[in-house]
Amino acid sequence: MDATHAGKRGLRVAVTGASGDFGKLLMPLLEQDPAVASVLVLDVARPEGSKVDYHRVDLTRHDAESELTEALSEQPVDVLYHLAFSYGAMRNGSLAHELEVAGTINVLAAAGRVKLPRLVVPSLTAVYGARGQHPALLREEAQLWGCPQSRFVTDKVQVEGQVRAFRERNPDTRVLVLRFAPVLGPSVDNPASRMLKRSVVPTLLGFDPLWQAIHEEDAARALHLALRAEASGEFNIVGQGVLPLSGLIRQAGSRPLPLPGPLYRAALHALEAVGAAGAAGLPIALLDYIHYSWVADGEQAESALGFIPIHHARDAAAALRRS
């Protein structure tokens, strides 16, 4: 039974990663949605909410698949939001990889066993990579070049491959992958928000790539729209307009500091050597994204999901001043 045909009993929604950035954005909307009867939270921490039915599940454990299968089998589930991905600062890359890649294997295996009607997974427009050869607008069918030097991006590309293979094996499950531009706002914590919160943001001298951003309120609406959308596939979720990186930095209340490439790298390496890479706001591995433009086309999300962003990229960046 799809989420659009749950009948009078109301929708039963399952969520992994309810305590993460995307989970915190989505959960209040599910609580407020009168069509949602209950929210099965599969997580290591219990969130607040009158509709919450909590099952403690650690996706990195060897028995996570069986625990997920059992929890999803107790009552019919109309949709699963798999949101258990790391966006905050995390020094243990192996643990993040285990959560995202191995955790997704467990989630998909359980979803296949219970014949889940609908699956929603967030991703990033960063999976397209940042390259000088990119077209002006990146559409969903574009190759996912990723960023080989970045575990953060590489894991997302790998997860997308897992989800694509799941969709091919399970044609009766409606699968939606939402590729978000950098999400900015008072309550999110990700590489872009940490970079833009710095009082001074190092940039590359001679380069000012175009960036997109999406306000956290728009990101939450896009997630909620996926609950009922008669669509499947990948969708770029972007805010209104684009800005050069320097403009985005200024809108966030910061100041860009253009540095020659060798000096920029030397500065980040020095901070990394003393254990302060986060202080620079941008890992060295993500340097391509302040070198080249990466602009995704949001037309398909509008036509298929009905998603129209309310906020401009400059509003999303300005929201960081209040965080």
Rank of each mutant, 00 (worst) to 15 (best):
residue 300 Q to T: 15
residue 30 L to V: 14
residue 64 A to C: 06
residue 97 H to L: 03
residue 262 P to Q: 15
residue 93 G to W: 05
residue 157 V to A: 12
residue 12 R to D: 00
residue 235 F to Y: 13
residue 38 S to I: 10
residue 50 S to V: 15
residue 259 L to Q: 09
residue 87 Y to V: 01
residue 14 A to H: 06
residue 323 S to V: 04
residue 168 E to F: 02
residue 309 P to R: 03
residue 89 A to T: 06
residue 213 A to K: 00
residue 117 P to T: 14
residue 172 D to P: 02
residue 243 L to R: 09
residue 241 G to F: 02
residue 193 S to D: 15
residue 231 A to L: 03
residue 99 L to T: 08
residue 52 V to E: 01
residue 224 H to K: 09
residue 40 L to P: 04
residue 204 L to G: 05
residue 136 A to W: 04
residue 169 R to D: 10
residue 166 F to G: 01
residue 241 G to H: 03
residue 172 D to W: 07
residue 244 P to H: 15
residue 295 V to T: 13
residue 251 Q to W: 08
residue 232 S to R: 14
residue 194 R to H: 10
residue 95 L to T: 14
residue 286 L to K: 02
residue 34 P to D: 13
residue 8 K to W: 14
residue 161 G to I: 15
residue 115 K to Q: 07
residue 105 I to A: 11
residue 289 Y to S: 13
residue 143 Q to P: 07
residue 258 P to N: 15
residue 31 E to K: 00
residue 152 F to L: 08
residue 125 T to M: 00
residue 111 A to G: 05
residue 90 M to Y: 11
residue 60 T to D: 06
residue 225 L to R: 01
residue 117 P to S: 12
residue 238 V to E: 02
residue 293 S to M: 13
residue 213 A to P: 07
residue 106 N to A: 11
residue 275 G to D: 10
residue 318 A to F: 00
residue 221 R to K: 07
residue 33 D to E: 12
residue 162 Q to K: 03
residue 250 R to Y: 03
residue 292 Y to E: 15
residue 106 N to D: 00
residue 227 L to I: 14
residue 255 R to V: 14
residue 143 Q to E: 05
residue 243 L to E: 02
residue 29 L to A: 09
residue 297 D to N: 08
residue 14 A to L: 11
residue 200 V to F: 11
residue 164 R to M: 09
residue 83 L to C: 09
residue 236 N to Y: 01
residue 25 L to T: 04
residue 42 L to T: 12
residue 107 V to N: 00
residue 98 E to D: 08
residue 309 P to N: 09
residue 174 R to S: 10
residue 280 A to I: 14
residue 17 G to H: 07
residue 1 M to F: 11
residue 213 A to R: 03
residue 288 D to S: 15
